[in-house]
C-alpha cells in the first residue's frame, strides 16, 4: 500500500513538475516576446543596455524586489538611480502590459543573461499592482 502511495505521489509530482516546466517555459517564451517588443530597443537583446543611457539588466543585483519591477513597468521610473556603479538620471516611460505579460517579462528578464530568480505568478503581479496604485483598473 505504502509503495503504491509513494508511486502515485512520485507520479503526481512528476506530472506536476512536468506542467510546472511547461508553464515556466511558456511564461519565459511569452516573456521573450514582450521583451523584444517593448524593452529590447533600449535594454538591448543581450540585456546589456547602453552605458550612460539605459541601465543593464544582466547580473546587476537590482532585480530581486518583484514589487519594484512591477511598479517600474506600470508607472515608469525617473532617475537618479545607481546600477552596477553607474549613475543614470533619465526617465523610462511606463508600459501598459497585462498582468500576465508583466509576470512573463519579469520572469524572462530575471532568468536571462546569467540572472536567476524564482518565477512569479500572475496573481502576484495583480496584487503588486493593486499595492502600488490605489484604484488601479485596466481598460
Amino acid at each position: 500500500m505504502k509503495k503504491a502511495i509513494l508511486f502515485i505521489s512520485l507520479g503526481m509530482m512528476a506530472l506536476a513538475s512536468q506542467s510546472f516546466i511547461q508553464a515556466n517555459s511558456s511564461s519565459l517564451s511569452n516573456g521573450k516576446n514582450v521583451y523584444e517588443t517593448y524593452c529590447m530597443s533600449c535594454h538591448m537583446d543581450n540585456g546589456a543596455g547602453v552605458p550612460g543611457a539605459f541601465p543593464s539588466l544582466a547580473k546587476t543585483g537590482n532585480l530581486a524586489d518583484k514589487n519594484r519591477l512591477v511598479k517600474i513597468i506600470l508607472q515608469g521610473v525617473r532617475g537618479p538611480i545607481n546600477v552596477k556603479g553607474t549613475k543614470y538620471d533619465g526617465e523610462m516611460a511606463s508600459i501598459s502590459l497585462s498582468d500576465k505579460e508583466t509576470a512573463d517579462v519579469i520572469n524572462y528578464i530575471r532568468n536571462s543573461w546569467g540572472n536567476k530568480a524564482p518565477m512569479i505568478t500572475v496573481a502576484e503581479v495583480a496584487a503588486a499592482k493593486k499595492a502600488v496604485v490605489k484604484g488601479y483598473q485596466a481598460y
Binding site: 530597443s41 533600449c42 547602453v50 552605458p51 550612460g52 543611457a53 539605459f54 533619465g90 516611460a93
Partner: peptide, 10 residues
C-alpha cells in the same frame, strides 16, 4: 536603437 530615448549626453 530608439533615438527618442537616447539623451545626447550618453
Amino acid at each position: 536603437l530608439k533615438s527618442c530615448q537616447l539623451p545626447v549626453s550618453a
